[in-house]
Write a protein that binds this DNA or RNA. Structure first.
Lengths: 139, 139
DNA sequence: GTATATTAATTGAGGTATCAATTATTGATG
DNA sequence: CATCAATAATTGATACCTCAATTAATATAC
């Protein structure tokens, strides 16, 4: 095995190991799972959106979307209602409570990310984001 | 929100999204989960190792190690036996079948990784690995 | 030497993700 | 307009991970 191959193999385990650590830690620090917060943030931007579009933007399986939204609804964070013009679709939007609570989550998230990226220069952050996007495109 | 903050926030979702996609794809391409292959590769290097050490090297929860090894044992890939000098410890090593089958997995893994890292120069791969390690240390 | 603390492994509970199959509704075709 | 195809959401099955609690064996301390 060449040195390059060694380095490449490391990346896979680093990536997976990192995510396995980050996800639970994120939830403990912020009080919400990262996916669920991503959903809420998308609802912030769009005010009203159906689950399919949500799924595309968050880039997650439809089954997961359904379950997250059910839970968010049960928690009083979002409201769901059918599109009267197309009864297949379900629209989702933030509840008043959701709007209120999301700001706290967002600031916790920023603190968390800055901790993860401590020591990274702005340029390094940019390069890292670029690398990750390129890997995403390779899938 | 500044541009830097935007870029930082992206990294978290990219990281998690990437791993969520990679893990199932890895298993479909190679025929084994990445964690389970990591365990087998460690056993390749050490020939005999107890579960605690395995856990430290793979950097995964002990509960997960136990379950993976039970399954690998049921699949005939590894053999487990207690340390006679300390009955708390369980040693693990590859079975003959494990030794035979691992080479195929390893070459599938290399193909998979090269696909994920298509278009990455050697230098970029090195920098990426370094970034991921730095993030790991920040946790 | 007996009580207490530590260590290794396991089990149980809870959460998230994927894939595949199903239901319900709408669109398209002949 | 009736059948067949496509789309949206849901449910069921399976797998992985973490954390917390438990069991069993060994070390340590008094």
């Amino acid at each position: 095995m060449t040195y390059k191959e060694f380095e490449e193999e490391q990346i896979l385990s680093l990536l997976i190991g990192l995510t396995n650590k980050i996800s639970p830690k994120f939830e403990r620090c912020t009080g919400i799972s990262s996916t669920r917060l991503a959903i809420l943030q998308m609802l912030c931007e769009r005010s009203e959106i159906n689950q399919s579009q949500l799924q595309k933007h968050i880039d997650i399986d439809g089954a997961a979307i359904t379950r997250h939204l059910k839970q968010l609804e049960a928690d009083g964070m979002v409201i769901r209602y059918k599109n009267p013009n197309d009864n297949r679709e379900t629209f989702v939007r933030l509840s008043d409570e959701g709007i209120e609570r999301i700001e706290g989550y967002k600031s916790e998230k920023r603190i968390f990310i800055q901790q993860i990226l401590a020591g990274f220069s702005e340029e390094e952050t940019r390069v890292l984001a670029d690398f990750l996007k390129r890997m995403q495109n390779n899938i």
